[in-house]
Write a protein that binds this DNA or RNA. Sequence first.
DNA 1: GCTCCCACTTGATGCAGATCAACTTTCGCA
DNA 2: TGCGAAAGTTGATCTGCATCAAGTGGGAGC
Lengths: 236, 236
Amino acid sequence: MTTGLKLSNVHKAMLGETILFSGLNRDERNALLACATIVRYQMHNILFHQGERGEYFYCVLTGFARLYRLGGDNQEGDIRICEPGDSFAECLVTDGGDYRYGAQAMEHSILARFNLEQVRALIEHRPHIGIAIMRSLSQHLLSTIDCLASDRMQTAPQRVATYLLTHCKQEGLAAKMRLPFQKSLLARKLGLAPEALSRAFSSLRAAGVTVSGRSIEISNLNVLKTIPAITSRHAP
Amino acid sequence: MTTGLKLSNVHKAMLGETILFSGLNRDERNALLACATIVRYQMHNILFHQGERGEYFYCVLTGFARLYRLGGDNQEGDIRICEPGDSFAECLVTDGGDYRYGAQAMEHSILARFNLEQVRALIEHRPHIGIAIMRSLSQHLLSTIDCLASDRMQTAPQRVATYLLTHCKQEGLAAKMRLPFQKSLLARKLGLAPEALSRAFSSLRAAGVTVSGRSIEISNLNVLKTIPAITSRHAP
DNA sequence: GCTCCCACTTGATGCAGATCAACTTTCGCA
DNA sequence: TGCGAAAGTTGATCTGCATCAAGTGGGAGC
C-alpha cells in the first residue's frame, strides 16, 4: 500500500463525478476534498479489518474493493463489490466506532480516503455536505435491500439475468457487454459459488446468452427479461 | 386507517426516545415534530405500495410494520420488520422518488408520519437534523448488512440462536424472553418459511431452548453461543 | 509458438430449506 | 366455557445450490 498522497487534479475530477460530490458547490467540494488523501493498494491487499477502529471512509477511483463479513468457521461472506465511484464506510461518519466489515482490494486499486473526524466536524456547519453523505447512504441502503431481496427471491439464473440486463449496452433487440472483473468476483457479488455462476451462464445459453471469457452477447433482450418467469417455481 | 391526527404529548415523548431524535436539542426536536402527524392502521392494512410516489417517511410508535419487496410470480420477500422506535423510508428524504418497497401493518399500529418535503426543506439549514437522519440511515444500512451476511452464512438454527441471544433477558447462566410478535413474523424477519422456523426451534431443544407459545426459556446461554459452531458445515 | 498456471467448467454427491399435506394447538370471540 | 378459525407443528418429498473432484481452456511469459 502507498499511503497518504495528495490529490492530483485528475483525482479531484474523478471524485467530482461521484454521487458523494453531487449537489455540492465549488466551496463545499473543496472543503470535503481537504479531508481526503489518495491511497493505492495491490491486488488482495487488505484496506481494513472488520472490528478495527474506524478512522477513514473511502471512495474507489480505480480498481475494485470487496467488502466482507466474517462468520464462524473462518468463513467470509461478501457484502458488496465497490466499483470506481463507489464509497464505503461512510456509515461511521455520524457516530464513529469500529469497521463493521473488512475491505480488500481485488485489483491494483486507487482510492480516496476521507478522515472521519474531519468530515464529522465539517457537517456540523455544512448541511449540504451532510446531505451529500445522506444521499450516498440512502443509495447504499437501497442497493443492499435489492441484494437481500434478490437473495431471498431469485434463483441463480435470475440474478445473472438481472445483472446482465442492468449492465449491458443495448443494440436494437440484442446487446453486449464486457464484465468489468473476474467471474469469481461476480459470483461473490451475487452471493454464489463460482461453480453456480458457471452453471447459471450455461443455463442462460438457451435464452440466447453467449459467454466468451469476459465478453458476453445477448441475442434478444426480451427473451432475457422472461427468465425470471421461466425459471420461476410455478412455471406452466 | 385513521389519518393525519395531531401529536399528543405521549406521542412526542415516545418519539423523543427514538434514534431519529437522539442528539437533537429542544428547538430541533420541535422543528422535526412539526413535520409529523399521527396515523393508525389495522392489522394487515397497507401503509404504501412499492412503486407509489413517496410522500412521507414513518416512525413506528406501537405495533409492527413489515417492509417487503415484490418479485415475479406475485411473490413477496420481506426486507425488514419495524418495531416501535424504528423509522423507515427516510432514504427518500434527499432525492424523493417512489417507495422502493411496500409497507404493511402487522398488528393494530400507531405511527408518526413525516412529510418528506418539509423535512427536506428543514435539513437545508439545520445540520443536526440531517445528522440525526444520517444516523438512522447508517443504522439501517448496518442492520440490513447483518441480515444479508446472516442469510449468506448462517443456517436456520444459527439465525434463531443469534436472535435469541440478542433479545433475551439474562438471568445468570439462563435466560428467558417473550417473542414480541407471531412466530410467522419472526420467520419472515429471518428469511425462513414458518415450517423452517419451527424445525429450527425443535433442533435447538437439544441446546436447552424451551418454547411454549411466545415464551422461550434458555437453560444455558453458553451452550446457545456454541450453536454456530455445532451446526456449521465443517463440524467434527 | 509452446508451456505453465490459474481461472473456469463440468460432473457427482450431499444438504438445507421450500413446498405440500395432514394433524394439533392456540387464541379470539361469543 | 366452548366453538371455529388461525397459527403452529410434523412428516414426506423435491429443488437449488454448495461442495468436492476432475477436467478444460486461455492468457502471460519465455
